[in-house]
């Protein structure tokens, strides 16, 4: 076996082929796209295999398929099982097939796909998936907006003045550990169900994170930069606006990313209490009627939006603060 061709890991590290110390060189470790694709494929394959029926008599399978084709209907695993349960015992019964996950606990890929199409065009309770997702996202953005608008000035003030730090420190440290969902009952009593309380809950979820990020960002400023600015004729306001604020941008950005993640998670949970429209509400109501395809599509939408938001933030970050981690 040749030394170089022996593993995928070595080939992927390219210019590091001449390194003799590879195990422990943690900085050189990177996520290999090929392996990511493989693991994703394995996950889908497992899903397909676990929800599929195995061992159905071939004739029965062919007959049902032809039956559905004749009616102009899509052939799905779930429909085939219904067919089977209604068929005479000698044609088909439960002892003839195995299935690891029944449609009552998890929908198969084709069922999920048809569920998605249904949600996309007709929607759930007359509200399309896009509207549900958009409503949830809009709530998160409004919560983040107010969270930043309140949190960043307060955090910066705490970073700039010992007195203000003293005043706000106890409050921040006391409220920060409270899980947003624990305060939700109070918010519902005060503000009612739906938008008013859910957006205020999101402000509560993000504001502490933004305060801490802004406080940390202010602290990263090098005294030399501040002194240089004053020596160049800057006023206090100009030092704040032209030095301390841009210098804090990397930390603020980290804060926004963390707060977005937390807000998104909090929101969906908050919507479970019923807000009419929203991914969380959709999932929870569908659960009551055992519409598992709706539940799964809703959950997947949450995951995908989460990933997309993070990707977007990375792109914006690379544009806005290219100096991060350099020099």
């Amino acid at each position: 076996m040749s030394e170089n061709g022996s593993s995928l890991f070595r080939r992927a590290t390219g210019q590091n082929d001449r390194k003799t110390v590879t195990f422990g060189d943690a900085a050189a470790v990177q996520s290999l796209p090929l392996w990511s694709a493989l693991s994703l494929a394995a996950l889908v394959l497992f899903w397909w295999a676990a929800t599929r029926t195995w061992g159905f008599p071939a004739e029965f399978r062919a007959a049902t398929k032809a039956d559905f084709a004749a009616n102009g209907e899509r052939f799905t695993q779930a429909k085939m099982l219904v067919q089977c349960n209604g068929a005479p015992a000698d044609v088909c019964d439960e002892s003839m097939y195995t299935q690891w996950l029944s449609p009552r606990s998890f929908p198969s890929p084709p069922d999920t796909w048809s569920g998605f199409k249904m949600l996309w065009t007709d929607g759930y309770k007359g509200v399309t998936l896009l509207t549900h997702a958009g409503t949830s996202l809009w709530r998160v953005l409004r919560g983040m907006f107010w969270g930043c608008l309140i949190g960043i000035p307060v955090g910066m003030a705490m970073g700039l003045s010992s007195r203000l730090r003293g005043i706000f420190d106890t409050i921040v440290e006391l409220f920060r550990p409270i899980p947003p969902l624990a305060i939700l009952p109070l918010f519902i009593i005060w503000f009612g169900l739906g938008d008013p309380s859910s957006v205020k809950l999101l402000i509560f979820a993000s504001v502490w994170i933004m305060i801490i990020a802004a406080r940390a960002g202010v602290r990263t400023v090098n005294l030399s930069k501040v002194r240089a600015a004053y020596s160049l004729g800057a006023s206090k306001w100009q030092v704040l606006r032209r030095v301390i604020l841009p210098n804090a941008l990397p930390e603020l950005f980290t804060g926004i990313r963390v707060a977005l993640g937390v807000s998104w998670g909090t929101l969906v949970a908050a919507e479970l209490t019923g807000t009419g429209v929203g991914l969380g509400t959709m999932i929870f109501q569908a659960k009551n009627f055992f519409l598992l395809d709706v539940v799964v599509v809703g959950t997947a939408t949450i995951a995908i939006i989460g990933v997309l938001m993070d990707m977007l933030m990375r792109i914006v970050e690379a544009r806005l603060i290219p100096w991060r981690g350099k020099g």
Binding site: N222, K225, R227, A228, L232, R242, P246, N247, L249, K326
Partner: peptide, 12 residues
């Protein structure tokens, strides 16, 4: 005017 050893330039 002041010139520092390093770290006083504005990276942004």
């Amino acid at each position: 005017g002041m010139v520092f050893q390093q770290g006083a330039l504005f990276e942004w």
